[in-house]
Design a binder for these strands. Sequence first.
DNA 1: AGCACGCCGACT
DNA 2: GTCGGCGTGCTC
Length: 749
Amino acid sequence: MGIGDDLMLFEETVPERCRYRVQVILPVEGPYDYLAPDGGDEGERFLPLGQIVMVPVGKRILPGVIWGGEPDTSVPQAKLRQIEAITDLPPLKDELRQFIEWVASYTLFPRGSVLKMVLSAPQALESVAGQKLYRQGDTDTEDTSFRITPARQKVLDLLAGSGGWTAVELAREAGVSGSVIKGLEQAGVVEGYLEVPDFSFPLPPSGIKGPVLSEDQRAAADDLINKVRAGNFAAVVLDGVTGSGKTEVYFEAIEAALGEGQQILVLLPEIALSSQWLDRFEQRFGVRPAEWHSELTPALRRKTWRAVSEGKAPVVVGARSSLFLPYEKLGLIIVDEEHEASFKQEEGVCYHARDMAVVRARGCHCPVVLASATPALETMINVQNGRYERLVLSGRHGGAGMPDVELVDLRFDKPERLDSGQGWLSQALRGAIRQTLEAGEQAMLFLNRRGYAPLTLCRTCGHRLQCPHCTAWLVEHRRFSRLQCHHCGYSTRLPDSCPSCDAEGSLVPCGPGVERIVEEAKKLFPEARIGLMASDTMTSPAATREMIERIEKREVNLLVGTQVVAKGYHFPYLTLVGVVDADLGLFGGDLRAAERTFQLLHQVAGRAGRAEHKGRVILQTSDPQHPVMQTLKAGDRDKFLEIEAETRSRGGLPPFGRLAAVIVSGPEEAELDNFCATMARAIPTIDGARILGPAPAPLSLLRGKFRRRFLVMTRRSVAPQAVARSWLQGLKSPSRVRVVVDIDPYSFL
DNA sequence: AGCACGCCGACT
DNA sequence: GTCGGCGTGCTC
């Protein structure tokens, strides 16, 4: 500092504190400018790009990240506030910041919203001061003036057993006051030290041998290992039927990545159902991986986030949000069951975790493996284009063949039609169940519908019981004597009389849910030991485990379930699968309805006959000529994909064209329709793009909000993002009307 | 997303 | 006459 500082005449020549661009976790686009924090070098930047800081925003202090780009000089200096604090976390890597930018511009969500998914563990951002622990001091303290009182002795006895106590624990356990410990510390008899908490997950010991692989498993594994070691981007589809050993193959790739000192991310569709997967991992690698999902405790969240950012979580298994963790050295991504629709996030930032995983892998220069027995059509077309490679695992391990698939034709003019009052199980299916049970094997009845009956109506006036907040029927759950809405959670007692005409005892259930199938099965097979598995009967991991065990021990021999039974569990004595309503998923106008139905039924069918017994699958259908049924019967997955590709190609639908859904919602229908009309008038004419709508969204009333939907359809060469942006940027919606863009929509709800 | 500012009904 | 409802708009 020179003397001139005090004599500075012109304010504008005072050296400014340096401006930083900080991206905060608000749903806003651009970074905001902030002044360097206290203690920073005047006028000179010292915080690196990606540094995580805390900044004042309005009344609050929020996390933000030092971002690149030129400061916004249009914001007056006087408006700037100072960076509040610098966290002790490693800066976000360039690769992650670029990923955030990419996701934001692809999904059309503000950058701050995407960043928020990265900084999703507020606990993790707090500095880790560590806590003060106590142990025995160095024993050379032969200070004769220090008296060992009984209170002091108790403390010393405890510490002689083991160190690592906090003052509070020590005082409580010894029954002394804190001042005793303080006195001991002062005399040097006990020693206080700061323990930095250990935020790390164990590294699997190297050299644990996996099972011996078959020839094609070995070839696939070696290919993946080479790619991992090369350290380049590659997208590889691991294509093999259930039981072909995909998991063992990618475990080999994980082993190789561990050997390279890299981190591995495994994305699973539903982490809640993955305890079997975790057990399997532990068997293979001797340790448990880090988990990342919404049910983590705050403490584990913090530990995991920190460990990931410091490279101390070698393997992370998680739901889609684990894609946004700040990996220190990501060397491999696995997306298991890549076709699963639950990888598509539909709330908040809409993104598809499988597709974003490929983008992330590209940014990290590492391979990504997409594993499935029924790859998505998108994925297979990417294989055909040469964008993805494909490794095929043929055949089931252990010699079990694919099950035989039979169709039961339920049409009215066919002998197997179901007459009213007869129930939902055809003669053919009943016979097969009887045979199976008599042979001492297990049978499963699959119906992808929870509850007792999907619709309740009044015989007197025809009134249908509907959710007050959604365009949806209320589903009867007889176990609880309640009616439930499966979209918003609304629940009410089953009324005794019709709410519309007051007729007593006039309400009748229509159609079957799994509970009703259980009821029918009990009547038909009174001797059978029936078990029910649905998402609402498996409320805790313990309850799930118990049911699984009962099935494995054959305490259950007739299992009735929704799609939860299709996911991952394998029951060696199960030889018959009956699909009560194979057509169920085909309705609803979803462009992927056929594909999803095929995948689900294929997966359910795969439950039958894994061990020595050949399995048998019976599909009850009213549309036996449908390509889904025909290709399932023929066991010809690729034929199905071929037909589906042809259908979509003709319609210009994904992956041959591109889609963006524009959902407009609001609490007042008139205002909503009014604004939709304004939007419709503003639809631009763009070559290679069309915009359809507004149509009432299939659930035109959801959670008390009215919804309309536009659909942007483009040729592959035209980005729907650009179309949506140019259409919507000039339109400002009334405050109570919300417009959300969903790029690559999946659910058409 | 939060939080405050701002303009219209039932209470000390 | 105030307390408070949530509509609207901003946050460097």
